[in-house]
């Protein structure tokens, strides 16, 4: 179930081989998973894979490709752009033969327009940045340095910046400031309330919730039935 996928050299030049987690048994329904980003990716990783396991048991193939700059990628995260990731998400959908998409949190910013599917608790670019900037400001104060969100953002726009340990390039910062998830035809949003508990990305430490994984998998199974 651990494989790789190749990003072609077209697009913005981010060609390369990236990891791919799959439950691929050649079944008709093939769900591309676009995971949450940065710190939320860690918080939601186990939950995401638990949902994939449930969908596998329900007869649905799932495909979770790493994007360049994420996890074990050899490409630096700081070089990634929103458009580049969108191109990669679309390329993954095509090369892996996805029929549907499940985009999680900020992953919704990358959901290919041509695929029907779901945006789970979609997160906008400005809210993502705001949370990360705030964490940086608070951490700096703890260390006795005074920083402001405005000053950090200004620096980020011109030269990029590292937030919570994640190096984010200037082009990515600028794009995120205006990035809102948009539902394409055939895509619907799943609100956190539908899963019967608080979002696991909120947790200070990574956690798991079998009930929420059941609920999300059930919504997807229902939509594909």
């Amino acid at each position: 179930m651990i494989s790789t996928w190749n990003i072609s050299a077209s697009g913005d030049g981010s060609a390369g081989e990236e990891l791919l987690l799959v439950f691929d048994r050649g079944r008709p329904a093939r769900l591309l998973i676009l995971p949450a980003w940065f710190d939320e990716a860690n918080k939601l990783r186990r939950f995401t894979v638990e949902v994939m396991r449930r969908l596998d048991a329900a007869g649905i193939d799932t495909l979770l490709p790493d994007l360049p700059g994420c996890n074990e990628s050899l490409t630096p995260l700081s070089e990634q752009t929103l458009e580049g990731w969108r191109t990669c998400a679309a390329a993954a959908a095509e090369s892996l033969g996805a029929t549907h998409v499940l985009a999680i949190r900020a992953g919704a910013l990358l959901a290919p327009e041509g695929l029907p599917g779901w945006h789970y608790a979609p997160q906008s670019g400005p809210k993502l940045l705001r949370g990360m900037l705030r964490a940086q400001v608070i951490a700096a104060r703890e260390a006795g340095n005074s920083e402001t969100s405005e000053a950090l953002l200004a620096k980020g726009r011109s030269e990029g910046l590292t937030l919570g340990g994640w190096p984010i390039g200037a082009a990515m910062v600028r794009a995120l400031e205006a990035a809102e998830p948009a539902l394409a035809p055939g895509q619907t949003a799943i609100a956190q309330g539908q899963l019967g508990g608080p979002g696991l990305w909120l947790r200070a430490e990574p956690d798991d919730d079998a009930g929420q994984a059941d609920a999300l998998a059930a919504i997807i199974c229902g939509g594909l039935a």
Partner: peptide, 14 residues
Amino acid sequence: PELDSMAVAGLLTE
């Protein structure tokens, strides 16, 4: 112990 700077940021955003 769970309430580090990242968690405080999450708390305030929420």
